[in-house]
């Protein structure tokens, strides 16, 4: 099997209330598919996709899809630590999922420290205009208030899905270039990938990964 070449690997996590559409969003992003119904996620599921952050530079996104139900929080919390990006998702047709944004945001920040992470806010199911309970303005205002980017997305129509992931990938890449985020031993948020064969990144990474107990 040959690995596609990528410069970095970023780990992202999707959080938000149950049934806001986190799994559908990820499935659309990684597989281009939309299913009207799917079994509720329990614990955490894993997805991955390559993405270009600027011409000729690709990163691998490893994506954790978390269960939204309260009872799973003690499990899902442990995934924050190794994430460099957090997408907080709400459902534009369900007011309560928007009202819980703040709680999700605070929980994520608390568990990510001392590491830095990029956050985006996603108002999902944007195709469901007739049942909208949260205006775009409200969503944007919440994001701006916290200095975050905002998108309204739909896994049904594909609206903004690519854009949202591209945005978080590019911002992470930029922060890395600027030195705001660094590759750190023992932290899986960002890792060096495989670039040109002559480099020894691969070896270094393999060593870095062997965590002995």
């Amino acid at each position: 099997m040959c690995d596609p070449i990528f410069e970095y690997q970023f780990r992202l996590i999707l959080i938000g209330d149950s049934t806001v559409g986190k799994s559908s969003l990820l499935r659309y992003f990684t597989d281009g598919k939309f299913d009207e119904a799917c079994d509720p996620t329990v614990g955490v599921d894993f997805y991955a996709r390559l993405m270009e952050v600027k011409p000729g530079v690709r990163v691998k996104l490893q994506l954790w899809d978390t269960a939204g139900q309260e009872r799973f929080r003690s499990i899902t919390r442990s995934y924050y630590r190794n994430s460099v990006g957090v997408m907080i998702v709400y459902d534009i047709s369900k007011r309560s999922s928007f009202e819980n944004l703040k709680e999700w945001y605070e929980e994520a920040r608390e568990h990510i420290e001392p590491h830095k992470a990029i956050f985006v806010i996603l108002g999902h199911k944007a195709d469901n205009e007739e049942n909208r309970q949260v205006t775009s303005r409200e969503g944007r205002r919440f994001a701006e208030m916290h200095g975050l980017k905002f998108f309204e997305t739909s896994a049904k129509t594909g609206q903004n899905v690519e854009e949202a992931f591209a945005s978080i990938a590019k911002d992470t890449y930029q922060h890395l270039q600027d030195g705001h985020i660094k590759i750190e031993e023992g932290w899986d948020g960002v890792k060096a990938g495989f670039s040109r064969p002559k480099e020894t990144v691969q070896l270094a990474e393999a060593e870095g990964e062997s965590r002995c107990c």
Partner: peptide
């Protein structure tokens, strides 16, 4: 009306 969609083949982590 949703039932039609559900019968589509789908496979996701942990789908029944």
């Amino acid at each position: 009306s949703k039932a039609g969609f559900w019968k589509k083949n789908s496979s996701v982590p942990g789908s029944i």
